[in-house]
Amino acid sequence: MADLACSMRSLSIQAGVDLWATIHRDADAAVARDRLMSSAVRALVLRHSSFPDALACNLARKLADDAIDAPGLAGVITDALEDDPDIIDATVTDLRAIRERDPACPDLLTPFLYFKGFHALQAHRISHWLWRHGRQHLARHMQSRISEVFAADIHPAARLGRGIMIDHGTGLVIGETAVVEDDVSMLQEVTLGGTGKETGDRHPKIRRGVLIGAGAKILGNIEVGEGAKVGAGSIVLDAVAPYTTVVGVPARPVGPRNTCLPALTMDQTLPHDWVI
């Protein structure tokens, strides 16, 4: 088992190196196409020796304020990345997921520099690390800045997997006890929230491969099963069975069973004859 773990870690490190090389090529091409981009691209990509260093710089520059400056935040982010290499592994997987699923994404450089859904998710990974290490006030400061800068409010205690695509990100809310597993895609204005003033475990559990459409609200300690699809604008108050599509207010199952993971195909269409 130890040999397998080492082998998997080596593959993961190589994947990160390959991704960084690709981003470097994308950056060189961007500068060649438009010299006005030279200063920004060099500051955020080309002058950095590694992907973690560039990620720390990029997030710190966006989240810094009068209370905590960019060098201070970059130091905190670097500490988290060095202590928990799984954060970088997850970030690499997230970037590749965006490139594969988003037709508006032409390369890896674009989401790394500009996609605030990606930025909010990676900044949350840092705030979650702070939360787990007993630094709750700094974690909440990060949460506040993520909300202010990226318009996404993710509680530091929420547990998010890898291979997640948050498209646009504006208006996203994810509560304290929410769980989002691997390979999930969600669009703007999604809420994974509670139903009132209850305490304890009170937020949704989103299983692998789920696709959540724009404006959907999933409320309460309910499970949305693997491979499910939640239609745009739906309000989900009850558990959703695996590989099931739900839509409406309140959401109800429609159409046949899904035969693949909707999050990977990004197929947001619904049966033409669905009736709630």
Results as ranks from 00 to 15, higher is better:
residue 128 H to Y: 13
residue 130 L to W: 11
residue 171 G to Q: 05
residue 188 Q to H: 15
residue 190 V to Y: 03
residue 110 T to P: 04
residue 160 L to F: 07
residue 114 Y to K: 07
residue 147 S to I: 03
residue 105 C to Q: 06
residue 178 A to W: 01
residue 138 L to N: 07
residue 159 R to C: 06
residue 180 V to Y: 01
residue 159 R to F: 03
residue 137 H to S: 15
residue 132 R to E: 14
residue 119 H to Q: 11
residue 109 L to C: 07
residue 121 L to T: 00
residue 148 E to Y: 08
residue 134 G to I: 13
residue 125 R to T: 02
residue 164 I to C: 04
residue 119 H to V: 00
residue 133 H to C: 04
residue 157 A to K: 03
residue 154 I to E: 14
residue 140 R to L: 15
residue 145 R to F: 12
residue 128 H to T: 03
residue 111 P to K: 01
residue 104 A to P: 02
residue 154 I to M: 12
residue 121 L to E: 00
residue 173 V to P: 02
residue 112 F to M: 13
residue 170 T to D: 09
residue 166 I to E: 04
residue 182 D to E: 09
residue 111 P to L: 00
residue 182 D to W: 08
residue 161 G to H: 12
residue 141 H to L: 12
residue 165 M to Y: 11
residue 129 W to L: 02
residue 148 E to T: 11
residue 118 F to D: 09
residue 151 A to T: 14
residue 169 G to L: 01
residue 135 R to M: 11
residue 132 R to I: 03
residue 175 G to L: 00
residue 136 Q to I: 09
residue 130 L to Q: 04
residue 131 W to P: 02
residue 183 D to M: 06
residue 155 H to F: 05
residue 153 D to F: 08
residue 126 I to V: 15
residue 134 G to C: 10
residue 170 T to V: 15
residue 143 Q to A: 10
residue 113 L to W: 05
residue 122 Q to R: 15
residue 146 I to F: 06
residue 141 H to V: 07
residue 139 A to K: 02
residue 168 H to L: 14
residue 136 Q to V: 14
residue 119 H to M: 08
residue 124 H to N: 06
residue 175 G to Y: 03
residue 106 P to N: 07
residue 135 R to A: 02
residue 189 E to D: 15
residue 174 I to M: 11
residue 133 H to N: 14
residue 153 D to V: 02
